[in-house]
């Protein structure tokens, strides 16, 4: 039953994504991409990834949407040259379908969804789950792995966020009134 829900939600996401291809109104596109993020958060919850669902709901439907709207208010609300040339569309379709076909072909060798015997569940994850709470005193294993076992990764990610913030400020903030 759970799987049916997951598949239905993903089907809705695909329908939304296809609608985004055709739409011209950038305001509506921004808002629908927020809806898309909420659906994705629901899928993550059904896949037992509550921390990720939480982040996706807050980031995708909250912050990204707000920033998109802020950027639209500084640029324009409509796509003025829709479609593009036919050759480009054919090329785009060909590349998308080639990539899709290759990935679907590769998926035949993937372990099935929820298979507890899949290789990913039998290496380091076992140790995290068995020892994590005992090593760190933190019951949320995701927090334990994020902050302690993979502390280097997280330090790097925080640095990336910080650098991106500096980049935005350098590009747009006016320190003096006469600056461009």
């Amino acid at each position: 039953m759970e799987r049916l829900h997951i598949v239905l939600l993903i089907a809705l996401m695909i329908a939304l994504a296809l609608a985004l291809v055709r739409m011209r109104n950038l305001l509506a596109i921004a808002i629908l991409s927020g809806v898309y993020s909420l659906l994705l958060a629901a899928v993550y919850t059904l896949l037992d990834a509550v921390d990720v669902a939480f982040t996706e709901a807050a980031v995708g439907a909250g912050i990204t949407l707000t920033l998109m709207l802020a950027a639209l208010s500084l640029t324009t609300r409509r796509e003025t040259r829709p479609g593009g040339r036919a050759a480009r569309r054919v090329l785009g379709l060909a590349v998308a379908f080639a990539a899709g076909a290759a990935l679907v072909y590769a998926s035949f060798d993937m372990p099935a969804l929820g298979d507890a015997a899949a290789p990913i569940h039998n290496h380091v994850a076992d140790r995290y789950i068995a020892e994590g709470p005992r090593d760190t005193g933190v019951p949320n294993i995701v927090t334990a792995v994020l902050a302690s076992y993979r502390g280097y990764d997280t330090l790097g990610e925080v640095t990336v966020i910080f650098t991106a913030g500096i980049g935005v400020i350098a590009l747009l903030w006016r320190w003096r009134r006469d600056e461009p």
Partner: peptide, 29 residues
């Protein structure tokens, strides 16, 4: 370990809050 995790999570939270608010201010201003 527990103390370290709480402290670095605090660092992460403060940085993310600061960066995102600063980015919003920058666009709005």
């Amino acid at each position: 370990q527990h103390v370290g995790i709480v402290l670095i999570e605090l660092g992460v939270g403060v940085t993310v809050a600061g960066v995102l608010t600063a980015v919003f201010y920058t666009f709005a201003e």
